[in-house]
Amino acid sequence: MDLSSVEKDIEKVLVTEEQIKVRISELAAELDQHYADKRPLLLGVLKGAVMVMADLSRAMQIPVEMDWMAISSYGSGTVSSGVVRILKDLDTDVIGRHVLIVEDIIDSGLTLSWLIANLEARGAASVKVVALLRKPDAAKVEVNVAWVGFDIPNEFVVGYGLDYAERYRTLKDVAVLSPAVYS
């Protein structure tokens, strides 16, 4: 989806399609080097991480495996409480595996913190995180994120997998959604 089809709903573009492509390539090269002697399991968190996972895995040059989880954190409105429910679990056993969680965005860090602890408890050899976007000002808990594409302000963003009410997910850029759309 091009910006022109939804520009009335967008305040500003934070990260362009071209910037995303360049940064994904850079991240892939870093991951290739880090995991050169391992066969990492890329774990995508549905649904937002679909675009990042697809582009990142295609840009990597080493063999990887992929799996998906869908998790939901309870809370009022858009606020995560950190209480997590697994909606779709992994199909792959992680015992002894090097797991790389692929995230679209990190806000509070509560759900991600839970997921890391869960995977470690399942016996993963290592658990690391790569995220396209991070909102440092929204963090409620500190999460060790090994690779970050872009730090962005604490604003409501859509595009490149991120949605509002299942809309805007296929927008090629990451953009700030106008509050008039969701207020």
Score class of each variant (00 low, 15 high):
residue 35 Y to A: 03
residue 159 G to V: 01
residue 145 V to A: 09
residue 27 L to K: 02
residue 159 G to P: 02
residue 6 V to G: 08
residue 113 S to R: 06
residue 102 V to R: 04
residue 155 E to F: 08
residue 83 V to A: 12
residue 74 Y to W: 13
residue 60 M to Q: 07
residue 32 D to W: 00
residue 80 S to H: 00
residue 117 A to L: 10
residue 22 V to W: 03
residue 130 V to Y: 03
residue 30 E to H: 03
residue 126 S to P: 03
residue 29 A to I: 02
residue 135 K to W: 03
residue 81 S to C: 02
residue 86 I to Q: 10
residue 66 M to R: 06
residue 41 L to D: 00
residue 57 S to L: 12
residue 22 V to Q: 10
residue 68 W to P: 02
residue 46 L to M: 14
residue 128 K to A: 14
residue 76 S to Y: 01
residue 45 V to G: 07
residue 7 E to S: 15
residue 49 A to S: 14
residue 93 D to Y: 13
residue 97 R to W: 09
residue 93 D to E: 15
residue 18 E to W: 05
residue 17 E to Q: 13
residue 182 Y to N: 12
residue 132 L to H: 01
residue 116 I to H: 05
residue 27 L to N: 04
residue 81 S to W: 03
residue 142 E to R: 15
residue 104 D to W: 02
residue 141 V to R: 09
residue 116 I to S: 07
residue 22 V to F: 06
residue 31 L to Q: 04
residue 140 K to Y: 06
residue 71 I to R: 02
residue 100 L to R: 09
residue 36 A to R: 07
residue 82 G to N: 00
residue 73 S to N: 05
residue 121 A to L: 11
residue 90 L to A: 10
residue 4 S to W: 12
residue 14 L to S: 12
residue 110 L to P: 05
residue 15 V to G: 13
residue 32 D to L: 01
residue 40 P to E: 04
residue 153 P to A: 08
residue 5 S to V: 05
residue 122 R to P: 01
residue 74 Y to G: 03
residue 114 W to Q: 11
residue 129 V to H: 04
residue 66 M to Q: 12
residue 58 R to V: 06
residue 21 K to A: 13
residue 8 K to G: 04
residue 146 A to S: 11
residue 26 E to R: 03
residue 145 V to H: 08
residue 137 D to W: 08
residue 158 V to C: 11
residue 49 A to E: 04
residue 87 L to C: 13
residue 171 L to D: 03
residue 36 A to D: 09
residue 9 D to R: 08
residue 50 V to D: 04
residue 159 G to M: 03
residue 23 R to Y: 11
residue 161 G to A: 14
residue 78 T to D: 04
residue 42 L to S: 01
residue 7 E to Y: 14
residue 23 R to M: 12
residue 143 V to E: 10
residue 62 I to P: 02
residue 95 I to G: 00
residue 95 I to C: 09
residue 102 V to P: 15
residue 120 E to G: 08
residue 88 K to V: 13
residue 62 I to C: 03
residue 61 Q to K: 14
residue 150 F to C: 13
residue 78 T to R: 01
residue 42 L to V: 09
residue 77 G to N: 06
residue 43 L to V: 14
residue 6 V to L: 08
residue 48 G to P: 03
